[in-house]
Design a protein around this nucleic acid. Structure first.
Length: 441
RNA sequence: CGGGGCAUAGCGCAGCCUGGUAGCGCAUCUGGUUUGGGACCAGAGGGUCGCAAGUUCAAAUCUUGCUGCCCCGACCA
C-alpha cells in the first residue's frame, strides 16, 4: 500500500473527549471515528487490525474443535420470552419494532438463538459434544459508554456455545475453551489471567473472566503471582492436558472484586505473591448446565433412549475490545507498538527523497521487492517533512521501519525496530530479517 | 437514572458577562522555498454560531424549551 493512496486521517492534537491512551491513539491514528455515543466506525487502519485479531481468535477456536457459523444481529423477541430473559435482561437490551409492529431486538448475546437452532436440528447424543461459535456484532445499551471502544454499545464479539450430554463432558468443553483462550491471548503477547467470576445475567455456576493487566482497566483482580507459572504451549486438547490446566488454575487464588474474600486471600496467598491490580476484561467463560436447554426445551436422546436436556456453556471474547486492550498493554510515553501478529502493516518504508530522484526510485524498488516477497508493507511516498513522517509512524506503531534517504549507498538500507537503534543492512539480509521476524505470525 | 459541564469552520478553541457586519491556531487548497525528527513565505476556500420559540430596531451574545455529546457515580463484556 502506498500512503498517498490510503485513507489514514491522522490528527496532531489529542482529542479532548478521549481520556485514556488507547482511545486517544485510536482517534489520532485514524483507526476509528465515533458515530454516536458508544458506536464507532472502523476506518481502514483500525479495521485491518480488528480483522487480524478476529482471524487469530478464529484460528484458535478452530484448533480447539469449535465450528464457525453466523447468526444474525437482529433476533425475534419470542425466544427471549421463552427463556424469560426478555424482561430480566433489562434496559441494556435494545428492543426494536418492525413495520408490522413485530417485536425484535438487536442481540446482546446468542444463548437463546443457538439453543433454538440446536433443539430444532439435533436429537441424538451421537451429535455430541458440539462446539459452535460465531463472530458477530452485538449491541448492549450501556448506561454510560466510555473509553472509546473499550466500553461501547456496539461491539464485535466471538461467542462459542458448547453442548454436552452430561456435566462431566460439559466440564471438558469448558476447559477446552479455557485452554483455547490462554493460547489465543498469548498470540497477542498478552498475559491474560483467568479469575473466578460472577455469572451475572448469563446465569450458571462455573465462570472465569480473562483479565489483562492495565492501570486503566475497569476490573480489579486479586491473585497469586504463582498463577503465571504456567506454560500452555505443550498442552493439547486432550484429557491429560485439560486436567493439568484445571488443577493449576483451581490451585491458586484469583478473584474479581465481586467474589473477593479478604480473609481467604490473606490466608491462602503468601504476602510476597499477592497481586492486587486493575485490568481489562477481554474474555468470559460460563458453564450454566441446563438453564437454557430446559427453558427452551433442547433435548437429545441418550444411548438408552432417555430424553436429556443438554448441558451447555457459553464463551465470549470481546474482539473489538481487544484492540484497545492490546494498545493499553503496549504503549509507552513515546509510541505504541503493535505485536507482530496484529500489526496493520509488517513494515513501513519511509521515503525521504523528492520526486523522481534516486532515493525515491530506490524506495519504490524496495517496495516492489517486499511486495514480491509477500510482505504487507506501506510506503510513505508523500512529500511531507521527514520529521512528521517519523512522528506519524511512531504513533501508528508499525514495529519495523525502513528509512530510505540520501545518507546511504545503493544496497544499504536503514532498518529500525521501534524503540531500538537502527542498523544498516543490505537488501538480502533485510528480507531475511523480516522473514525471521514474521515466521511465527 | 442522579450530579456536573459543553455545543461557534474538518479538529482544538476565543468571542457571550456589557446585544451592533464571524475570529484565532492546526488541518485543507494554490504558488514558491524547504526536506534525517511535527519547516517557512505569500495567497485562497470553508460558518443557517446544535434546533425551536421568545425579548429587541438589532441576538453567537439575553430568556425559555428541546436535542446531542462529555465527565463523576450506581450498573455492566
Amino acid at each position: 500500500m502506498k500512503l498517498s493512496n490510503y485513507f489514514l486521517p491522522i490528527i496532531k492534537e489529542i482529542p479532548s473527549d478521549a481520556k485514556i491512551k488507547s482511545h486517544q491513539l485510536m482517534i489520532r491514528t485514524g483507526m476509528i471515528r465515533q458515530s454516536t455515543s458508544g458506536i464507532y466506525s472502523w476506518l481502514p487502519l483500525g479495521f485491518k487490525i480488528l480483522k487480524k485479531i478476529e482471524n487469530i481468535v478464529r484460528d484458535e477456536q478452530n484448533k480447539a474443535g469449535a465450528i464457525e457459523m453466523l447468526m444474525p444481529t437482529i433476533q425475534s423477541a419470542e425466544i427471549w420470552k421463552e427463556s424469560g430473559r426478555y424482561d430480566s435482561y433489562g434496559q441494556e437490551m435494545l428492543k426494536i419494532n418492525d413495520r408490522q409492529k413485530r417485536e425484535l431486538l438487536y442481540g446482546p448475546t446468542n444463548e437463546e438463538l443457538i439453543t433454538q437452532i440446536f433443539r430444532d436440528n439435533i436429537k441424538s447424543y451421537k451429535s455430541l459434544p458440539l462446539l459452535l461459535y460465531h463472530i458477530q456484532w452485538k449491541f448492549r445499551d450501556e448506561i454510560r459508554p466510555r473509553f472509546g471502544i473499550m466500553r461501547c454499545r456496539e461491539f464485535l464479539m466471538k461467542d462459542t456455545y458448547s453442548f454436552d450430554l452430561n456435566e462431566k463432558n460439559a466440564e471438558i468443553s469448558y476447559y477446552k475453551m479455557m485452554l483455547s483462550y490462554l493460547k489465543t491471548f498469548e498470540r497477542f503477547n498478552l498475559k491474560a489471567i483467568p479469575v473466578k467470576a460472577d455469572t451475572g445475567p448469563i446465569g450458571g455456576n462455573l465462570s472465569h473472566e480473562f483479565i489483562i493487566l492495565a492501570d486503566t482497566g475497569e476490573s480489579e483482580i486479586f491473585t497469586d503471582s504463582e498463577i503465571f507459572n504456567f506454560e500452555t504451549k505443550l498442552l493439547e486438547y486432550n484429557d491429560v492436558s485439560l486436567k493439568k490446566l484445571s488443577s493449576h488454575f483451581s490451585k491458586f487464588y484469583s478473584s474479581t472484586s465481586d467474589l473477593h474474600d479478604v480473609n481467604k486471600f490473606q490466608k491462602q496467598v503468601p504476602k510476597k505473591n499477592q497481586i492486587i491490580k486493575k485490568g481489562v476484561e477481554v474474555g468470559h467463560i460460563f458453564y450454566f448446565g441446563q438453564k437454557y436447554s430446559k427453558s427452551l426445551n433442547a433435548i437429545v436422546n441418550t444411548r438408552e433412549s432417555k430424553s436429556v436436556n443438554v448441558y451447555m456453556g457459553s464463551y465470549g471474547i470481546g474482539v473489538s475490545r481487544l484492540v484497545g486492550a492490546i494498545i493499553e498493554a503496549n504503549y509507552n510515553n513515546n509510541f505504541m507498538k503493535w505485536p507482530k501478529s496484529v500489526t496493520p502493516f509488517q513494515a513501513v518504508i519511509i521515503n525521504l527523497g523528492k520526486d523522481n530522484d534516486t532515493v525515491t526510485i530506490k524506495a519504490n524498488n524496495l517496495y516492489q521487492k517486499l511486495i514480491h516477497n509477500k510482505f504487507d508493507v506501506i510506503l510513505d511516498d508523500t512529500d511531507a517533512n521527514p520529521s512528521s513522517k517519523f512522528k506519524n509512524f511512531e504513533l501508528i506503531g508499525i514495529p519495523f521501519q525502513i528509512i530510505v534517504g540520501s545518507k546511504h549507498h545503493d544496497d544499504e538500507f536503514e532498518f529500525k525496530e521501534l524503540g531500538k537503534d537502527s542498523k544498516i543492512v543490505n537488501l538480502d539480509s533485510l528480507i531475511s530479517i523480516l522473514k525471521e521476524e514474521y515466521s511465527n505470525c
